[in-house]
């Protein structure tokens, strides 16, 4: 065998080894992504085991939160997280739909990109800024202008009146829900806008040719065609709202009490952890907070997984 052939063979061998090594390193990096998700869930289950063992199912259904008596129940923060997120969705879903409608059907072409960029800036503002603005600007605004009106006009109503009566503190569930709603609007509206754009022009043009108005095209053609992805976008926003921490911590009031009124201060899972973690003076206290984190993680994972599956369905139908 001549020298060139030997050299070529050796080089091929070296390069094959390098390729294998390279692939192996990349594979390891990709596995880290899986490890982080699984590790986060398992480590919190492990960290919260003391609380789960001590309280069992009472941990979820008890509203006690007594660091001195060492009795912990998660009902108040769970209710706070669900209620504030529900308020957020009631506000964010219709507004986001309106924005997506505006950006795809109403606005002239030259206006679409700047407005879309401005709405996305809302998503870029850090949540601590939302929190500070909420505490110093929005809470006084609510307590002086909005809440007295709500008290007077919605408070006396039968059935739902109890939700809207209470002292106009400004800080509370309703304020937190509104701030959360503003924070998730950019996420939901950008998904809606993107999926509205995937509707084939021929479908929309057919509807227009039959004499449909813009609204009828959107309501009867665009929305049915994109339904699962739109719900996916809403779930994505819900996942964000459930786990949001800092903004809620500022305006929710950090009060461990269950009250029917949305105007009263409350607590959420994330806000409880943020406020009390460094003050936790016993193992059981710390473990209860980590157990709260585990519950939050599991709920958001389920919501986000649903969101991704629904968004994925549309992508597959598109043949992408």
């Amino acid at each position: 065998m001549n020298a060139d052939a030997v050299e070529a063979r050796d080089r091929t061998a070296v390069e094959t080894r390098q390729d294998t090594l390279f692939r192996f390193v990349l594979f390891g990096a990709a596995s880290v992504v899986l490890f982080v998700l699984a590790g986060a869930a398992l480590s919190m289950l492990w960290g919260g085991r003391l609380a789960f063992q001590t309280f069992g199912w009472h941990f979820i259904f008890s509203s006690d939160w007594d660091p001195v008596g060492k009795h912990f129940g998660a009902l108040v923060p769970i209710y706070g997280t669900l209620a504030s997120s529900a308020i957020a969705m009631v506000i964010a879903v219709p507004v986001s739909f309106g924005i997506a409608l505006f950006l795809t059907e109403i606005a002239p072409g030259w206006l679409q990109a700047p407005i879309a960029a401005a709405i996305e800036l809302l998503a870029g503002i850090p949540s601590i800024i939302y929190g500070m603005w909420g505490l110093f600007s929005f809470v006084p605004f609510m307590s002086e202008h909005v809440l007295p009106w709500i008290n007077d006009h919605l408070g006396p109503l039968p059935w739902i009146g109890v939700l809207f009566s209470g002292p106009p503190l400004g800080i509370g569930m309703l304020t937190a829900g509104i701030v959360l709603g503003i924070m998730v609007i950019p996420f939901i509206s950008s998904v809606m806008r993107d999926v509205f754009r995937t509707v084939p022009a021929s479908l929309k043009e057919s509807a227009y040719a039959l004499g449909s108005t813009t609204w009828e095209v959107v309501w009867k053609v665009v929305l049915p065609y994109t339904r699962s992805a739109v719900v996916g976008g809403i779930f994505l926003g819900l996942g964000r709202a459930l786990g949001e921490t800092m903004a809620v911590t500022f305006v929710l009031g950090n009060a461990h009490q269950l009250s029917a009124s949305l105007l009263m201060p409350g607590n959420s899972i994330a806000a409880t952890i943020a406020n009390e973690f460094t003050e936790a003076d016993s193992d059981l206290y710390l473990s209860s907070l980590i157990a709260l984190g585990f519950l939050l993680f599991v709920v958001t994972l389920i919501v986000l997984a649903c969101a991704r599956l629904m968004l994925h369905n549309l992508a597959r139908r598109e043949g992408r």
Partner: peptide
């Protein structure tokens, strides 16, 4: 696809939970 899916979830996972994760490990 599993890793892509998990990564997309991680993208919107609550950041406070990641802090708890680093705290425990």
């Amino acid at each position: 696809e599993t890793i892509r899916f998990v990564n997309d979830i991680l993208l919107s996972a609550p950041s406070i939970v990641l802090g708890l994760f680093v705290y425990t490990i």
